[in-house]
Simulated assay, not measured.
Amino acid sequence: MTPVAAPEAPTGAQQAVEFDTDKGTLGSEQKGFWEQLALALFIGIPFLALLAAVPVAWGGFLGWHDVVLAVVFYTLSGHGISIGFHRYFTHKSFKPNRPLKYALAIAGSLAIEGPVVRWVADHRKHHKFSDREGDPHSPWKYGTSLGALSKGFMHAHIGWLFDTEQTPQRQYAPDLLKDRDIVRVSRMFPALVLFSLLAPALIGGLWSWSIEGALTAFFWASLIRIGLLHHVTWSINSICHTIGDRPFRSRDKSGNVWWLAILSQGESWHNLHHSDPTCARHGVLKGQLDTSARSIWFFEKCGWVSDVRWPVKERLEARRVRAAEV
Rank of each mutant, 00 (worst) to 15 (best):
G108N: 01
E113R: 04
R170K: 13
F94Q: 11
F299T: 10
W297L: 13
R294M: 15
A156C: 09
K31V: 07
F248S: 13
A53R: 01
L146W: 15
L41E: 10
S77W: 04
T2R: 14
L48C: 13
K31R: 15
H123N: 02
R281P: 06
G32H: 11
F19A: 15
L316C: 02
L289N: 10
F195N: 05
P115Y: 12
L272D: 12
G114M: 06
F129Y: 15
L229A: 15
T21Q: 14
Q14K: 10
W297E: 15
D135M: 06
F94C: 12
K141Q: 12
F218H: 04
D290N: 05
R315K: 14
L194T: 10
A217D: 07
H273D: 01
H127S: 10
S275L: 01
P311W: 01
I203P: 00
D252L: 00
Q166Y: 02
L26M: 13
A173N: 07
D290H: 03
G12M: 03
T167K: 05
P277C: 07
T90P: 01
V67R: 03
E317K: 14
L263C: 06
P168A: 04
G244M: 02
G24N: 00
I43R: 05
Y142P: 07
P10V: 04
T11I: 10
T278A: 14
I158G: 02
H282G: 08
H126N: 09
W119N: 13
A156H: 13
E35Y: 14
S150G: 14
P190R: 02
K253F: 13
F129L: 05
